[in-house]
């Protein structure tokens, strides 16, 4: 039972992180019909920024989080406005734009190495307690924090997208940009903002996972790919699918490592990705976007 709970909690931790990344993929896909490979590296950058503000400069954790969040919205917005949108305007084929996102991904990854070095850095603890007991099992408070904050972020994003003027405008712009423009919506800003929010979600994931996994330049690379699997499992382009897909993948992975062997957890994750692509490409939430 103890082992089960521990595996379960760590599965939720990584699952929530996958979910946050997958959310970004879904948002971007909905807003621009585009795949972005930058998400994982935005997680890395977010983790490094959080380390710098909180760990190095000793800025209180809440303020650090907010600062990183705002900076990353700007970075995501900038990537869309400065690179993606310009390529779209030049009528570049979508596949080349996807390649451009891979380029940006490596630039961020290597850029992070240039600034912060290639050693693994320790993200300082967020809480003084070493572990707290849940159902008789000791759990690292940061792990719990990661789960709780991810879930809160997802709920807030849901409220923002569904019940506010701007979220509704963003959904409208992604469904039909032309009609949205004639409804008075500034589609350029709305698309840029979608990328900004996706980046902020990734950076949040980075700051949450940093204290658990440590901070290094390839932190986001693997997580980014897993987030992609999660998005496909949930239904690419579906926000709820992204979260559910992420948590399921996280749980499967940790249970595989816990009860079978950690050596094969990636094998398992990617076989599942292929299975979904063959058997149910619309994912758990039956999102048709990818079929159109």
């Amino acid at each position: 039972m103890t082992m089960f709970m521990q595996v379960f909690v760590s599965g939720l931790v990584i699952g929530c992180v996958y979910g946050l990344i997958a959310l970004g993929y879904s948002l971007i896909y909905k807003a621009s019909g585009m795949m972005s490979f930058v998400q994982g590296d935005l997680l890395t950058v977010g983790a490094f920024l959080g380390y710098t503000f909180y760990g190095l400069w000793k800025i209180p954790v809440a303020i650090s989080f907010v600062m990183v969040f705002i900076l990353m919205v700007l970075l995501g917005f900038g990537i869309e406005r400065g690179i993606i949108n310009r390529l779209v305007k030049k009528k570049t084929l979508p596949i080349y734009i996807v390649l451009a996102t891979i380029a940006v991904s490596y630039i961020l990854q290597n850029g992070a190495m240039y600034i912060w070095g290639s050693n693994m850095l320790t993200f300082p603890r967020l809480f003084s307690a070493n572990s707290i007991k849940i159902f008789g099992v000791g759990v690292q408070p940061e792990a719990l924090f990661c789960i709780v904050v991810s879930l809160i972020a997802m709920v807030i994003l849901h409220i923002f997208m569904k019940y506010t003027k701007y979220g509704t405008a963003m959904r409208a712009a992604s469904m039909d940009p032309m009609a949205a423009r004639s409804c008075g919506i500034n589609v350029s800003v709305s698309t840029g903002l979608t990328w900004g929010i996706a980046a902020a979600m990734a950076s949040l994931a980075g700051m949450l996972i940093g204290p658990v996994y440590g901070v290094f330049t390839t932190l986001g690379a693997t997580i980014g790919r897993k987030g992609f699997s999660s998005a496909v499992m949930g239904g690419y382009g579906n926000m709820y699918g992204a979260i559910v897909g992420g948590i399921i993948l996280g749980l499967m992975e940790t249970f595989t490592s816990g009860y079978i062997s950690s050596a094969y957890k990636d094998l398992f994750a990617y076989i599942i990705l292929l299975l979904f692509l063959f058997v149910k490409p619309t994912g758990i939430f039956n999102e048709r976007a990818i079929m159109e």
Binding site: K165, R171, D176, M178, A179, G184
Partner: peptide, 22 residues
């Protein structure tokens, strides 16, 4: 060119976008 996956009333509310101040 409607927002087909939104409700009828939400389509109308999107149309008000430029008149809402929040």
């Amino acid at each position: 060119n409607l927002f087909k996956k939104m409700t009828v009333i939400d389509n109308v509310v999107v149309g008000m976008h430029s008149r809402l101040n929040q």
